[in-house]
Design a protein around this nucleic acid. Structure first.
Lengths: 338, 338
DNA sequence: CTCGATTGAGAAAAGGTTTTCCCAAATCTG
DNA sequence: CAGATTTGGGAAAACCTTTTCTCAATCGAG
């Protein structure tokens, strides 16, 4: 029983139950008509033989493989793994499995994987990237299956899922304003990122709504602790009109900023409140004090993308265009409040 | 041509080429005997129709799906994503695709995915974890397919792949000794990790070989920047016999340590040389100076695991037990030298 | 008691390939 | 030129399910 090499087929079940394979199939799938006794007998026999239908034979007749492809160029993993986990989990619950295709920004590898997915007859494709304003290194050929894009550039007429960067930034800034902060600065990444501009927009919107100034505009730089640290030193050693809060473009910048503030003997959150972006636990939890930050709900993004893809596969009408999934503010101690 | 819904089959190719499906199949697979003209004609027709054989139909007759399952509980992604990328890439080159199953330490989810993999008739299974001394939350039932374990506890008689922690630590320490360091400390993670003990062992072996002392033994704590920072302050503010080098159990600790040293006006690497472990680019590159560190070659681990699994599937004899794949020292500026 | 309707269950086709024979025609051997 | 061998190519089974018919037996009604 342990080293079963050849698997039990529905023929064996049928034989053991003394019925035809047709009847066996119908019994197991709750289809067709037969006496309850027959149905039960077949089901019990199947259970005893621990029969599991061959998904490929099944796929062949259903013209549907219950299989998806996930193409990603994010080897770094910060974005894709949560997305993949969310996708995989939601799909597993529906009997759908996900092929992982890691294409390292290599068009040839992308092509190879794309062909493999076609050959394996996946029902649909998820294209996941690391930047909403960049596509993957593939010009998708006329594919014979539906496609959704996650956290990547979405071509005209396609279906895309991205975090609502603007909304997330608004959430963070409005939270600071509500806590009584009056001069809320924004330190963020390079201007070349679309996400940077969206977050700036959210920051501005919240400031306007609260009737607050945007002191000196946003400070652009890079996504590193170092940039947060250096900018913090510059911003807070110049006496005068110092911010009483900073909304940072990501958690690393926030981490660096907090280091700088600590060095300058400024207390977080009493003297300066800080909010980050990403909820990258590694940074957010390790910061002292632990970081209030914006979670992009990447797992949810993966889940929604998968569910929508299933709808498309089922032929349900699906609205084209990019959906911005709401972010969630995770409050920890770096900005005071409850 | 763009919205092709139903795909072209070998029957259509055969018809178009004026041969039987048997001949068509043989022509395309370089099998059987026929005139070169016939073969070429079939191949050309197939190309023109952009025929691609249905992998599932194929799998059905070959009793082989050219498909693998990757079960992981590492949602965090630090370890599994590189492993998965290496695995996926190596397999793609061989026409094998990989199902990703993210089971979040949830036995029920594990079971669900395991059944899905059985149903989909994967040829083999890769079980990947985040700690070499922990298994996944599944007691593998008598599986009908070969299994390899990566970066996870490997059951008696199984086949496993882990980084050679001891060797990596030796590499790092020996490098410091070769550069002339005489008092090489070791700051690392919790004693509950097997990897911690292995790295301590490598550190000790290198010290012994170089005839150096192990000042005060290894310093155990946690895998955080904070621990590196605090231990650095403690270790280096006490005057007297200060180390002239530190081998850190991971890059985060090293990063924290460097922060502490900088604050104490100790120069890296002139006053204290530092080596990390993980080569997590995010930390290693961002550190100032950039960190010399040990790379566990996780992609290679994934690749080797996959290739060995393929051997097992092919019925080739494969030695049981755990293989320790060598690490690689990545030299940057934090320990001087060339 | 007969005719039509219902019921339970099986035969066979379909889904797309590969592979094992098998056969007729062409080629070679003596 | 008769017989043996090679050659090119096809028919059909196999892989495992599902689904659509079909059919005999049973049932109810008149």
């Amino acid at each position: 029983m342990s080293d079963t090499v050849s698997r039990v087929t529905i023929h064996q079940v049928a034989a053991a139950a003394g019925v035809s394979v047709a009847t066996a199939s119908k019994a197991l799938n709750e289809r067709g008509r037969m006496t309850p006794e027959t149905r039960q007998r077949v089901q019990e026999v199947a259970r005893n033989l621990s029969f599991r239908p061959n998904a490929m034979a099944r796929a062949l007749v259903h013209q549907r493989s219950f299989t998806l492809g996930l193409l990603t160029n994010d080897t770094y993993g910060r974005f894709t793994l949560p997305v993949a986990a969310g996708l995989s989990a939601a799909m597993a619950d529906r009997g759908v499995s996900v092929f992982l295709c890691a294409i390292e920004d290599d068009p040839q590898r992308a092509w190879l994987n794309l062909e493999a997915m076609e050959d394996k007859r996946v029902d649909g494709l998820v294209i996941a990237g690391k930047r909403v304003d960049r596509g993957l290194p593939i010009t998708l050929p006329a594919l014979s299956m539906p496609v959704v894009h996650v956290n990547a550039e979405c071509p005209e007429g396609g279906v895309g899922f991205v975090p609502d960067d603007e909304g997330g930034a608004y959430l963070a800034t409005a939270h600071l304003a509500r806590l009584g902060c009056r001069r809320i600065a924004h330190i963020t990444g390079p201007e070349s990122f679309a996400a940077v501009h969206l977050r700036v927009a959210g920051w501005r919107r919240a400031l306007e709504e609260a009737g607050l100034p945007a002191p000196g505009g946003a400070l652009f730089g890079e996504w590193s602790e170092r940039f947060g640290y250096e900018t913090g030193q510059r911003l807070f050693s110049a006496g005068a009109e110092r911010p009483d809060a900073v909304f940072c473009g990501n958690d690393q910048i926030a981490r660096g900023l907090i280091d700088a503030l600590t060095l300058l003997n400024l207390r977080v959150p009493e003297d300066v409140a800080v909010v980050g972006f990403d909820n990258w636990e590694l940074f957010a939890q390790a910061a002292r004090p632990p970081l209030t930050t914006v979670d992009m709900e990447l797992k949810g993004l993966g889940r929604e993308a998968g569910l929508t893809l299933l709808d498309m596969i089922d032929g349900k009408p699906v609205e084209r265009g990019v959906r911005r999934q709401p972010c969630r503010l995770v409050t920890r101690r770096s900005c005071g409040g409850p």
